[in-house]
Computed example of a mutant assay.
Amino acid sequence: MRSDPSPSRPFMVCRDGEAVPGGLEGAVAAIGNFDGVHRGHQSLIRMALEAGRPAAVVTFEPHPRTFFRPSEPLFRITPEPVKLAILRRIGLDGAFVRRFDARLASLSAGEFVDLLAQDLKLSGVVIGHDFHFGRGREGTPALMKELCAARGLSCRIVEAVRDGAEPVSSSAIRAALEAGDVARANELLGYRWFVQGEVRHGDKRGRLLNYPTANMRLPEDCRLRYGIYAVRAAVDGRPVDGVASFGRRPTFDNGAPLLETHLFGFDGDLYGKVLDVELVGWIRGEEKFDSVEALVARMDRDSDEARQILATDRTASMIE
């Protein structure tokens, strides 16, 4: 894939009701939800990049499952801002973000392809082998190929990417993160999973323990396992190693879940800044300690283990 685009080649986002930017006219677009932008998604994107035209994705917000089953919150691996940041970093020219609502859900398969050809002005599409589209999921990959041919669009269908016997999927990555197995999640993603959020003021307890932290609230749908992780953050464009706790602080207040990141050797002010934090490795589950002294002693060991994990990890980064 391309390297990170230069500032002279901006990443363009085209939403409902907006004219297609000149730089995206005639694009070849991979189509999907792209939650996680994992290795399977990247195989579609790679094919769009190799087509010799502007390369983009067509993606949907909110996630269609949220529209169809609003009472069942979906753990989003990559909320929209993170997803777009990854797509830019991969080297795409842009993204068509379509609002998934009753109007879009009601389109027939043919009307959906008309949208691609006429409204988005695409020259071709790339889809997965199991992609379904149109009202009631009536459209199949074979039908997509037929409808595209009738409208002068190219259509490429990509087979599943597997990791051993298991197909790479967003659901498998969610399950790994819910178990705290970030190493497995990162293997399926092809890069270190990261979260993004604004650093908030806390109760400053970490400073009293000689472990100052940058505190972030993760999305309410985040079901990452509570525990301690080896992490790496991007601070003013440079990577900084650290250790983080995600959970409710049972030793103190058992409050709302927070990601509390201690950055090794960092003494700057991050309040109000948006921070990207990669989760690199699992250390242990969240625990309640009988004393502050016991907690600090365990935090010292956690920090040593985090340094060991970070020194040996070679997974690709999307934030550096």
Results as ranks from 00 to 15, higher is better:
92 L>N: 04
132 H>M: 07
270 L>I: 13
307 R>W: 12
107 L>M: 11
8 S>A: 15
202 G>M: 10
253 D>K: 02
179 A>H: 13
106 S>H: 00
282 W>P: 11
34 F>K: 09
69 R>M: 12
272 G>N: 11
63 H>L: 02
136 G>M: 06
174 R>D: 10
137 R>E: 01
223 R>I: 10
31 I>M: 02
317 S>F: 00
305 E>T: 15
9 R>C: 13
195 V>M: 05
51 A>K: 05
179 A>I: 06
263 L>D: 06
307 R>D: 10
47 M>T: 12
123 S>D: 11
254 N>F: 11
145 K>D: 08
26 G>V: 01
36 G>D: 05
10 P>N: 06
58 V>W: 03
90 I>C: 05
180 G>P: 10
235 V>W: 06
243 V>E: 07
269 D>N: 14
184 R>P: 14
317 S>Y: 04
263 L>Q: 06
174 R>P: 13
32 G>D: 02
138 E>N: 02
277 V>Q: 04
76 R>I: 09
251 T>G: 02
298 R>W: 11
171 S>R: 12
147 L>D: 04
203 D>Y: 11
69 R>C: 10
59 T>S: 01
287 E>T: 13
54 P>V: 06
142 A>C: 03
182 V>C: 00
222 C>G: 06
259 L>M: 12
221 D>F: 10
276 D>Q: 15
41 H>T: 09
261 T>I: 10
92 L>Q: 00
269 D>L: 12
57 V>Q: 01
227 G>Q: 08
107 L>C: 00
46 R>I: 01
59 T>K: 03
69 R>D: 11
165 A>K: 15
54 P>G: 08
307 R>V: 13
189 L>S: 03
236 D>A: 14
270 L>Y: 03
9 R>P: 06
93 D>I: 08
138 E>G: 00
230 A>N: 09
163 D>T: 03
66 T>Q: 15
158 V>Q: 05
310 L>D: 01
285 G>H: 11
267 D>N: 13
126 V>Q: 00
232 R>M: 02
219 P>G: 10
103 R>K: 12
26 G>I: 03
130 D>F: 13
204 K>S: 15
317 S>D: 03
295 L>Q: 08
309 I>F: 08
